[in-house]
Write a protein that binds this DNA or RNA. Structure first.
Lengths: 350, 350
DNA sequence: TTGTATGCGTTATCAC
DNA sequence: GTGATAACGCATACAA
């Protein structure tokens, strides 16, 4: 049926070993025969069988993606993860690695579920996304020594690291943007105080405010839960303040939209009276009115960093060499500010 | 390193052939030895190597997903496709098939690009998503005889079919909803006239209007390109009509939002003066003001139908039997109307 | 530089 | 019911 390496060998008048060497650009074959073999292989439409290849090479040139999407059955959407998937896919396409999606159904029950799928498919490495990093199966996978990268998921290990966004720097960019527009009374609507990204964004806000020698009066830090309504409530609290802020950095787009609405309903203007900067650049950020200035996580860059880290780990492992320290250092990707309509010059003193 | 079938055989005191038979529940092995072998295999933590397995069985229990995401580099997002992916993934997880993501980089150039990857990975079947169905490589893939299912992509062939939403019925639901609110002058903003979903939605509109004995005057059908701005332009055309519609069925949420804005900017009210129904129930449909009444596609059901169709095709092919007619019949999944704020009673005659 | 032979871990085809 | 053994398609150690 399909043409195999023996067919190419016969037609070329050489042995299969020579064909293999020629096609894989291995040394020890004359340029002349190499060219001839390559030509005949192309002519015959020869395609090496990947299963056979990985069986003998003991590697599959395939990385697995472990991504728990069960939340989706409940109607939830996490668009950011899906953006990350695309970033990963695009970056991987340039490297020759294939991507296998594994569905972690039994992960909760079976401690070795992840190791098992990895071993059965001879996966060269694994990317973790949207799973609980405290899962025993995750820890077991990491201590198995297989190269593992957490995508927006803080895991560390002998051959494990992670890629995430620099939430501190993102918050700093937002605050600096507002300050550069002349704002001095800048408040923040933060996320839940027990989540790492929320904590980092809040710290980034505080640090930058301090660096700019701007005061953070009582009441300038309000917490929400990332949902729209909590943004409304938070903004109401901010509007009730004696020294009302002229700008607000909001740690999530939905909350920012809620905050916007509350400002407008109060008869004030955005950005005329109050400037607002969101976070995440969700799809709707560009659509609402006024369009939201926000911080975008660069998922293409995150995908690229993930692939880079993972392939480094993989090649180092195959080379049998020691794990390079720098290869297991987490990579924080800079978030970029997308300036739209919801931020503008500070109102002239009045 | 890892325990293989020979280890199990040795420990069981039987041959590898017997082990294989026992573990795969093949006939010709006594219940007694079967149980013993299974027990020892479990005890040893034996995991069959899937590459070796698929090498000899000539099937991989893996389906490929061909999904072109290159548009994403341009900053575009198609959230619906990502919902579909999750639906597919969840449905597939229950069947034991694995999912391999293939990135069609050379598809445009190489006529046989898709066949090649399928053959190299011994894929049992392929799901197509977000690629141009007119691509020569797609046609070539289908005529290769491999089981292929288009997800929201109208392909047909000897072992090819597709799953889509019932766009006709969705449009009908929208029109009937508006009619039930008392509207009689119902216009539509359709999609590009050369895309099947757009065509079906338009036909569903026409049929239902005819069935309700409602007139579709000249100018009541305007085409857009699914982007927001085209919805604005289309609505401007509609507003300029002598007999202005009191309701508009818009074939996409973004266009519907654009249409809403244009109505509001013209000093008219939604839904007071003009009711609007969108299509897709994108995330932002629930967030914009007024919240959009729209048609939601059931992506979990679509994923399930895709898997069902594909596995039927695959098992039929492996059985060597003829292709069941019904297995290549497209499956249309019913869409549901989500009533929100953008649709209301028709204005009383004036 | 090239060819021969062996092994990768299974399943399947024969014998027995 | 069970056991040798030959594929499956490829890469590579060793010989030549």
């Amino acid at each position: 049926m399909a043409v195999d390496i023996r067919d190419v060998a016969r037609r070329s008048g050489v042995s299969v070993a020579t064909v293999s060497r020629a096609l894989n650009a291995r040394p020890g074959v004359s340029a002349e025969t190499r060219d001839r073999v390559v030509g005949i292989a192309r002519e015959l439409g020869y395609l090496p069988n990947l299963q056979a290849r990985s069986l003998v090479r003991r590697r599959s040139d395939t990385v697995g993606l472990i991504w728990d999407t069960s939340y989706s059955s409940a109607g939830l959407r996490v668009p950011f993860l899906q953006d990350l998937l695309i970033g990963l896919k695009l970056a991987l396409a340039d490297t020759g690695y294939h991507l296998m999606l594994v569905s972690p159904r039994a992960a909760a029950a079976d401690l070795h579920a992840f190791e098992h799928v990895a071993s059965q498919h001879s996966l060269d490495g694994v990317v973790l996304m949207g799973v609980d990093e405290h899962l025993p199966a995750v820890k077991a996978l990491i201590s198995s020594g297989l190269p593992v990268i957490g995508l927006d998921l803080p895991v560390r290990g002998i051959r494990a690291s992670y890629v995430s966004t620099d939430n501190r720097a993102g918050a700093a960019a937002a605050v600096r943007h507002l300050a550069s527009l002349g704002h001095r009374r800048i408040a923040t609507i933060a996320g839940p105080p027990d989540q790492l990204p929320a904590i980092d964004r809040l710290e980034g806000y505080r640090e930058t405010m301090a660096g700019l020698e701007l005061a953070v009066p009582d009441g300038y830090v309000v917490h929400g839960d990332y949902f729209l309504d909590s943004g409304r409530a938070a903004m109401r609290a901010l509007l009730a303040l004696d020294e009302r802020p002229t700008a607000v950095f909001v740690a999530g787009d939905s909350m920012a939209i809620g905050a916007c609405r509350t400002v407008l309903e109060a008869g004030l203007d955005v950005p005329g009276d109050i400037s607002i900067v969101g976070y995440d650049d969700e799809e709707l950020a560009a659509v609402v009115r006024p369009a939201l200035t926000t911080i975008r996580q660069d998922y293409l860059a995150m995908g690229a960093a993930t692939v880079e880290l993972l392939t480094d780990l993989i090649t180092a492992r195959h080379a049998g060499g020691p794990v390079d320290e720098s290869a297991t250092l987490p990579r924080l990707i800079r978030a970029v500010l997308i300036a739209r309509e919801s931020s503008g010059p500070a109102p002239t003193a009045g």
